[in-house]
Amino acid sequence: MVDAVYRFPFDAMASRCEIRLAAVDGHAVEELAQAAIAEVRRIERTYSRYRADSIVSRINAAAGRYRVECDDETLQLLAYADHLYGVSGGLFDITSGVLRHAWDFRQPRVPARDELAPLLALVDWPAVQREDGGIFLPRAGMEIDFGGFGKEYAADRACALLQQHGVRHGYVNLGGDMRFLGPQPDGRPWSIGIQDPRKRDGTVASIAVSHGALTTSGDYERFFDIGGTRYCHVLDPRTGVPVSHWRSVSVLAPLAALAGSVSTIAMLKEADALPFLAASGLAYFAIDSAGQTYHHSISGDYAS
């Protein structure tokens, strides 16, 4: 009996999401999909900066006041954030989310330098104190934000849950951040389109993927234009100003968290991104501000 492919669309993390699984028994696979969706929503509840009861909000509310105890999962994410800060040369800084208080991408307004200055003074991951299973943000107003890899982490966790239950064909797609469980039932890879950063319904490439993860960071998700200049939501933590060298960077990696981190760091590195991408050893497809494309082994695949 040939497996059928079942689709389970849902909303999470301010994104349209979908889990696509192949199975003989539709009822059994639906239970698994719902368990995976529940895991995504657990991570959103736990780490969303928009929920007052999340661990992230509790850490931020305690800034300059007291230390907050963390569970093992949160400590692992904080350790990963510390690793990303190091490998990015300080560009990937989870305390830079505070800059969103100056930028509202729903309206075209560039904040003045004196608006950014007090916020930039709060961007300082090395000052954050992590010891004895807890974290302390030393200055009032400091914040952390796992948004730089939260969706990708959730995709990996949902995929791990499905793999533990024997699912071998399908993928998890959280707003374009994708983690693959295995090929289509007939063994063919999934054909995934890379979004055209200048055409909402267009694609610029089609990538064949069976395993691993594919994520994209770009200047087209949240942005506004003023006088022909595009201001996107990817902000340089040193200046508080949006990056502008790349339209998008897509990365293929074994894990979604890794792919997403590398693509975001590449955006932040601007003109220095290509040596960084080459050093990563990962496949990528990048489009610069002039529309020129750069890629390396993007048709590759990662076995589980």
Rank of each mutant, 00 (worst) to 15 (best):
V2W: 13
D3F: 08
D3Y: 12
R7I: 03
R7T: 04
A14W: 11
L21C: 04
H27V: 13
H27M: 05
A28K: 08
A28G: 12
E30F: 08
A33L: 12
Q34K: 15
Q34D: 15
A38W: 10
E39C: 09
R41T: 10
R45W: 09
Y47H: 12
S48V: 03
Y50W: 12
D53Y: 05
I55T: 14
I59H: 00
N60K: 11
A61G: 09
A63Q: 04
Y66V: 01
V68A: 01
V68L: 01
L77P: 06
L77G: 06
L78R: 13
D82T: 13
D82H: 15
L84S: 02
G89T: 08
I94P: 11
S96M: 07
L99H: 06
W103N: 04
F105R: 01
D114Y: 14
L116C: 08
P118N: 11
L119T: 15
A121R: 12
L122P: 10
P126E: 09
E131L: 14
D132I: 08
P138Y: 01
G147D: 09
F149T: 00
F149H: 04
K151A: 02
Y153Q: 05
D156F: 05
A160K: 07
L161R: 03
H169Y: 15
H169Q: 14
Y171G: 08
G175R: 01
M178G: 11
F180I: 08
Q184F: 13
I192V: 15
P197S: 07
G202F: 00
I207W: 09
A213I: 00
L214Q: 10
Y220W: 11
E221Y: 07
F224W: 11
G228N: 09
D236P: 00
D236S: 06
R238V: 07
R247F: 10
S248V: 09
V249Y: 00
S250C: 03
V251C: 02
A259W: 00
G260H: 02
S263V: 00
T264A: 02
I265L: 01
K269N: 06
K269V: 05
A273Y: 06
L282T: 02
A286T: 02
G291M: 04
T293D: 04
Y294P: 03
H295T: 10
Y302L: 08
A303S: 07
A303T: 06
